[in-house]
Write a protein that binds this DNA or RNA. Structure first.
Ligand SMILES: [Zn+2]
Length: 510
DNA sequence: ATTGCCGGGAA
DNA sequence: TTCCCGGCAAT
């Protein structure tokens, strides 16, 4: 009554959180009760830490998770167990150090395949303190099993991400909503299992894979927080679907064999066909008419553009993500052993007028490109007119087609922006954006990278044959990325009011 | 299973 | 009026 105050409705009971214990490290647990002192006292949470019997009572400030402190704002102790996405699978590691000042965390992980221990640098935002519900995931494609299973399939240059299968979010924690389930998951599992079998057959029973005690040291004394990250290796396959989910590790489009029909963006500079037969059969091979697909860096303020997506990814990796190729210069197309392919989130395909660029193999910069590329990690979400593409770089949309599912800004479907960034960034979005005025402002400038989850993974532009509009009820035809979808449940406060009320969206109404 | 949102209802 | 949600249609 009275004072409008709306509590986040969802019950936090049952929410998985990381709880800071006496040793200063965080351990996974579940909230089982909340005790709030009505007289202004601090709220006390009763958390059952995994591996312990009794629940312990902790203060809010000792919790990390959705609705609480975000990982980004805590200092991790040495020895803290952490989960990161490495080579497309979640691995568990131990923090070697955490330097908040430069936002860098060094984690020691062990590669399940090689058994080699490796130190990985991550940003705090890319780190989870809780294990994802679905961990283990093979990178497929060029992992061993892929070779075993079908090595004939691809021999040529392959690109990490063709399809836009959405991966996920980051911010390891969860509230109460479950993430979408991908059906490919099963496939992968199967293949994975098959692979394991193969490997088992061809290797010694106790294959080099996964050295038992991956991190036998410096962990909690008696708490078995783990439950095995690489579950598949343990033999426990139970795909539990506990209520508290979490992000699923970012994984790429996996399916190796089937010829992907759509959504296979251009590949390499020379003569590989792209899929644009869909929108305009231009450039079946080389530059033909007058446009051509280029790969443009979408990093805020950066205008780098290259002809090969390979190149743009390299650019992004080194310039923006600050990662250098860890692995020895692999010949050209396999064992991508770097990190999760975060670089893929920062480029987009663009149709370029062929006359404006010269060398197909060399990265080039748009004429107006400001030399000032942010040196360090620029803060995402600080909008600064990103897509200020000079007229030459973008082609107008061919027909009165809709440009669905890409730009959240419905107002100017003038430019087709062949999309690609398959997923959103792995930024943590635990708290409401400190952005300028309206979230819409930030949106209009770029991808909704502030968004948490882009649920249905499909981001490829596609020309639908007929504009078809039936404003009846339910849903509009193909397009429907409204606040809910764009921001996800987790960021409900960013939705427009109408959406919050389950009414017709006013922001993306169109 | 998820998303958009109408219609209805409580505060 | 503001806010919330059941439930249905369309994916
Ligand atoms: Zn809305």
């Amino acid at each position: 009554m009275s004072t409008g105050k709306r509590l986040a409705k969802r019950s936090i009971l049952g929410t998985r959180v990381a709880c800071c214990l006496e040793d200063g490290k965080y351990y996974a647990g579940v909230i089982c009760a909340v005790k709030t002192m009505d007289d202004g006292g601090p709220t006390v949470y009763s958390v059952r830490v995994e591996g312990e019997r009794r629940a312990r009572e902790v203060r809010e400030s000792d919790l990390v998770g959705s609705g609480f402190t975000s990982v980004g704002s805590v200092k991790l102790r040495v020895g803290q167990r952490a989960y990161i996405t490495h080579n497309n699978r979640e691995v568990c590691g131990t923090v070697l150090y955490h330097r908040p000042n430069i936002d860098e965390v060094l984690i020691s992980v062990t590669n399940p395949e090689t058994g080699v221990r490796q130190d990985v640098k991550k940003r705090i935002e890319d780190i989870r303190l809780l294990e994802s519900r679905k961990s283990a995931r093979l990178a497929d494609q060029d992992t061993d099993f892929a070779k075993l299973a079908d090595m004939s399939t691809d021999r040529k240059e392959r690109k990490p991400s063709q399809t836009i299968d959405v991966p996920a979010p980051t911010s390891g924690f969860q509230g109460s909503r479950k993430r979408r389930s991908s059906r490919t998951e099963e496939d992968q599992m199967d293949e994975c299992a098959a692979a394991m079998v193969l490997m088992k057959l061809s290797c010694s029973p106790r294959s080099p894979v996964l050295p038992d005690g991956v991190m036998g040291d410096s962990m909690s004394p008696g708490s078995s927080v783990s439950s095995g990250v690489w579950t598949w290796a343990d033999g426990s396959f139970s795909s539990s679907s506990s209520s508290s989910s979490s992000r699923s590790p970012a994984h790429r489009s996996a399916t190796p064999s089937p010829p992907l029909s759509e959504s296979s963006p251009a590949t390499l500079d020379d003569g590989l066909e792209l899929d644009e037969s869909l929108f305009d059969d231009a450039v079946p091979r080389k530059r033909r008419s007058s446009t051509r697909t280029m790969f443009k860096c979408t990093w805020t303020g950066c205008h780098e553009m290259t002809a090969a997506c390979d190149a743009i990814e390299r650019h992004i990796r080194s310039t923006h993500l600050g990662r250098e190729e860890v692995t020895s210069d692999h010949s050209d197309s396999d064992s991508d052993d770097e990190d999760d392919h975060e670089e893929e989130f920062y480029w987009t395909e663009v149709e370029v007028n062929v006359t404006t660029w010269v060398d197909p193999c060399e990265p080039l910069v748009t004429p107006t490109a400001p030399p000032a590329t942010p040196p360090a990690h620029p803060v995402l979400g600080a909008p600064q007119k990103v897509l200020t593409i000079p007229p030459t770089t973008v082609i107008p949309q061919p027909l009165g087609t809709t440009c669905p599912s890409v730009l959240p800004q419905p107002t100017s479907p003038q430019y087709i922006h062949v999309s690609s960034p398959p997923t959103l960034s792995h930024m943590d979005m635990a708290r409401p954006p400190h952005e300028a005025s309206s979230p819409a402002a930030s949106l209009s400038s770029s991808w909704p990278r502030t968004s948490a989850y882009l649920s249905s993974g499909r981001a490829k532009v596609r020309v639908s044959s007929s504009p078809k509009a039936s404003p009846g009820r339910g849903k509009r035809n193909g397009e429907s990325r409204k606040c809910r979808k764009v921001y996800g449940m987790e960021q409900r406060d960013l939705w427009c009011t109408q959406c919050k009320w389950k009414k017709a969206c006013s922001r993306f109404g169109e």
